[in-house]
Structure formats: structure tokens, C-alpha cells
């Protein structure tokens, strides 16, 4: 409403036309309504308003219908299926109450998957934020050919995760062992993905290789908004490189760090393609993420209702983490 006042004086003469139709309305609306309602009209304000309301209603209808069918309805259906014993195929099934939910909390496979996701997400966000800022600082140097390097560094972001996993699957299973045996390096001769302890790091490496590209470009765009004078002044005051980074660079990057944290955490908590294609959850369940577990229960192991109950619990965990993160990052933005 704040922007209404200065102009309303200029246009106040136009209200006289509307006074004829309804005096009281104009008095109230000239205070409250937005600038858009100021118009000269023989139809009167009320019918103009109605035509606008109708247009607005028509504008939002298709979107709201799509939203109700493909977002609200599936969630409602999910809640319903999660209290049944449906296997996803048979015609008949029974309502079993919270039995599925109870079994989830006794299922070590589920808690392992949650633990895997939590550890994976923490490592992924730390790697992406630290490496992303480091690469952005590097790409912000004004040296010859830097635009070419920037284009190269961003390229992994436009590939599909599936393509990237096919490439790195080959590297892990065939190329690195070949190099390892040629150079006689022991730990390279076996695939990183074939051992329980190293497989999660192998998946993480591939995810970071691709996942750091977009954050790097965002950080770089943030660095370019920092005025040079700030660094020059700090240098004159005798601030060293770390102090300049800590007190000038970092505060400017805070809003972008918060965006990157939310985006990366969400991708880590929902990781599917990387594990599905690189390890399929193996070896021995060491890389079985929540998404993969739900997918397998639903489509491979015919535990349809159970998988939906798992999705509900996982959904609550992920939504809670996102909400906490966003409220923290909103607070970060203040200073």
C-alpha cells in the first residue's frame, strides 16, 4: 500500500466519476485498494472489480487444477495406502492401521538408509560449499583465458546424472584398476566401489564432481558483486589475505551460501541416480539411500504399502531438515 499515496493525489480527480455510483465505496477504497483500481469508468468500480476478479480466477484455475490432481491427490492417496497391506498389484487389500509404520522403526535396513543419507548429506554439503567457494575464488582471477575455464568448469552441470554415473562407473571399475596395475599401485587395483568402507566415498566423489558446478557459478556471480574498493581499503589498512576473505568476501557470499546449503542438502537427502547407477545400493547395502530403498521396496520387492509408509517417514524427516535449514539461513541473511 505504501506506494499508493503519492500518486493517488494526482488521480484523485478521476474518483469523481465513480462517486456517482457509490460514494462510500470510494472513500474506503481510496485508502485501502491498490493503484490498479484507479480508473475512469462509466461502468462503475464495482463491475470493473468484478471483471478483474473473474479474470484472476480464470488465470489461477488451470494451475490450481493441476496442483490438486498431481500434488495434493498423490499425497492424500499416499497417506491412505500407507495404512493398508497393498502389494501394488492385487485387486484386494486390507486396512492394517499403523502396522507399516511400526515395522519401519524395527527395520534396520530403513535406519541404515537414513544414517547413510544423513552422513552423505553432511559430507556432500561441506564438500560442495568449500570446494565451490575455492573454485569460484580461482575462477574470479583476472587472467587470460579465464572465460574458457569458466565454461569448462560449469559443463558437468548440464549433463544428466545418469551419463555422469556411466562415465565414472567405467572409470572406477576398469580405468583406475588398469592404471593401478600398470603403475603397481596397490589400492587402485581394486574398484573403490567394491569395498564397503570406500563405496560411499566413491559415490560422493562422482556427486561432487557434478554437483559443485552450479554452486561454483553462483559463488562466482556473488564474488563479482563485491566492489574492488573494499579490498583496496582493507589492504591499505594492513589486513592479510585471510582477514580480507573472512571480513569482506564471506559476508557477501552468505546469501548464496544459504541457497547452496538448502539446494545441496535436498539433493543429498534425496540422492537416487548416483547410487542406483553406480552401486545399486551395494556392496552389502553400504550405499543404500532412502530413495533407492523406497524404489526397490515398491518396484522390485512388491512391498508397495510399506514403501509408501517409508516415504512418509522419510518425507517428514526431509521436510523438517529443510524447514530448520531455511529458518537458519533466513536468520543468516539478516546481517
Amino acid at each position: 500500500m505504501h506506494h499508493v499515496l503519492p500518486i493517488s493525489a494526482q488521480y484523485s480527480v478521476l474518483y469523481t466519476g465513480m462517486w456517482v455510483t457509490s460514494t462510500i465505496e470510494v472513500e474506503m477504497d481510496s485508502m485501502a485498494a491498490g493503484a490498479k483500481q484507479r480508473q475512469f469508468s462509466f461502468l462503475g468500480k464495482k463491475s470493473k472489480d468484478r471483471s478483474k476478479n473473474i479474470t484472476f480466477a480464470l488465470f489461477v484455475t488451470p494451475g490450481l487444477i493441476l496442483y490438486s490432481i498431481f500434488l495434493v491427490l498423490p499425497v492424500v492417496m499416499g497417506v491412505y495406502y500407507s495404512v493398508t497391506d497393498w502389494n501394488g498389484i492385487s485387486r484386494r487389500f486390507n486396512i492394517v492401521g499403523i502396522k507399516n509404520y511400526r515395522s519401519i522403526f524395527r527395520d534396520s535396513r530403513f535406519s541404515n538408509a537414513v544414517l547413510f543419507n544423513l552422513k552423505y548429506t553432511v559430507l556432500l554439503t561441506v564438500c560442495v560449499v568449500v570446494l565451490g567457494i575455492a573454485l569460484a575464488l580461482l575462477l574470479n582471477k583476472r587472467v587470460k583465458g579465464i572465460t574458457g575455464f569458466r565454461a569448462m568448469y560449469f559443463f558437468p552441470a548440464v549433463l544428466s546424472a545418469l551419463s555422469v554415473t556411466l562415465i565414472f562407473g567405467q572409470i572406477f571399475y576398469r580405468v583406475l584398476p588398469q592404471i593401478g596395475s600398470k603403475l603397481n599401485i596397490g589400492f587402485l587395483q581394486k574398484s573403490l566401489l567394491s569395498s564397503k568402507t570406500t563405496a560411499p566415498y566413491g559415490v560422493l566423489l562422482v556427486n561432487v564432481w557434478q554437483g559443485v558446478a552450479l554452486p561454483t557459478i553462483l559463488f562466482l556471480a556473488g564474488l563479482q558483486t563485491i566492489p574492488d574498493e573494499l579490498y583496496e581499503a582493507a589492504e591499505i589498512d594492513g589486513a592479510n589475505a585471510w582477514a580480507r576473505f573472512r571480513h569482506i568476501t564471506l559476508p557477501f557470499l552468505v546469501p548464496i551460501i544459504s541457497i547452496v546449503l538448502v539446494l545441496t542438502a535436498k539433493s543429498g537427502l534425496m540422492v537416487f541416480e548416483y547410487v542406483h547407477s553406480l552401486t545399486d545400493g551395494g556392496p552389502g547395502g553400504a550405499t543404500e539411500s532412502i530413495s533407492l530403498l523406497i524404489y526397490r521396496h515398491a518396484f522390485v520387492e512388491n512391498k508397495f504399502a510399506y514403501s509408501i509408509a517409508e516415504a512418509m517417514v522419510a518425507g517428514l524427516i526431509i521436510a523438517a531438515i529443510s524447514a530448520i535449514q531455511i529458518s537458519i539461513s533466513n536468520r543468516m541473511k539478516v546481517y
Partner: peptide
């Protein structure tokens, strides 16, 4: 009404895909 619509739509950003995945296939 539109305020409600706005927040009602924003909630969907926080709903992970897995929750909708199976019902969407059925739907």
C-alpha cells in the same frame, strides 16, 4: 484467498518426491 493459495502451493517445495512417487504411478 490468494494468500492461502500462495502458502498452500509453497508447501509442495518441502514435500520430497518419494512421498508422491508411488501414488503418482497409480494415478
Amino acid at each position: 484467498f490468494y494468500r492461502f493459495v500462495y502458502y498452500f502451493i509453497l508447501i509442495s517445495i518441502f514435500i520430497p518426491f518419494q512421498v508422491k512417487m508411488m501414488p503418482l504411478v497409480k494415478l
